[in-house]
Design a protein around this nucleic acid. Sequence first.
DNA 1: GCGGGACCTCAAGCACAGTTCAACTTCCGA
DNA 2: TCGGAAGTTGAACTGTGCTTGAGGTCCCGC
Lengths: 149, 149
Amino acid sequence: MTHLTIGHLAERAGVATSAIRFYESRGLVSSVRTTGNQRRYEQSTLRRIAFIRTAQRVGLSLDEIAEALDTLPDGRALTKADWRRLSTAWRPRLDEQIERIERLRDRLDSCIGCGCLSLRTCALSNPGDEAADRGPGAAFLEPHGRRAR
Amino acid sequence: MTHLTIGHLAERAGVATSAIRFYESRGLVSSVRTTGNQRRYEQSTLRRIAFIRTAQRVGLSLDEIAEALDTLPDGRALTKADWRRLSTAWRPRLDEQIERIERLRDRLDSCIGCGCLSLRTCALSNPGDEAADRGPGAAFLEPHGRRAR
DNA sequence: GCGGGACCTCAAGCACAGTTCAACTTCCGA
DNA sequence: TCGGAAGTTGAACTGTGCTTGAGGTCCCGC
């Protein structure tokens, strides 16, 4: 069985079938159809989905992931080299995320110490080093309603 | 001038007026009205907003923030002690966030080393220690369209 | 060959945190 | 007093990542 039904793929990849159809609508995965119009997936799709989920955990949006997948040599079959190349690119992103939260935590600590909250001077109230009026601050949200399966 | 217009408050707090009205609709801040039905805010609202924004950066949803604000002694005027108490409660949350991303990064490193992507064994593809089929993995997204002002 | 579980499509809905719009009113300085 | 900036409301829209539902079709084991 080189071809998987959407249900089997979903089960093995640990995502909902609706999510897979959604990914397909976004061009992140592809399938062939049976004569009865049902989707059939190659084994490699399992890798693609693993890639997608991991990339999401790194903080990439589906659009960015699609873009990354599009840069693949000739558009198919994720190889080890691809994985290595792309995951290397993620590394700084994670480092940055960690750094941001650490910065916030440290400020929180100093504010706990001073009990300040004086808006003009408190480092916490004033993101400062992140160009306050240009970018968003570090905001890390758990994904809403998402759940495996 | 003990009372601020919504525009001044917005400017000093570094948020959009629409956000303030939104917070008010959610019960996060309150105002009194002029005879002409315009909102007027107390200085302390500035602190409340600073609190809200910081809490968001820690990863709390507006609902959780509202809940925290509701636990205040008698419902008004954020004090230093309140701040200390609440920010102390955030600390573990930040530590946890950092730990999660670090774990992901480390896995990424080991996967870069092995170039694996063999779905059954790769630690990256298999969140494992986070009870894979129950909770969401660590996913940290930048807030969409948010922008100071 | 038949029954029910798995699959199909398309549209709508959800959650979050706001922003934008239209149509209108109020406020304040010159 | 007048005019434009700033304020008001409610409804609709944004973006992300899916899920849910309705109404119908397919596939496979017994």
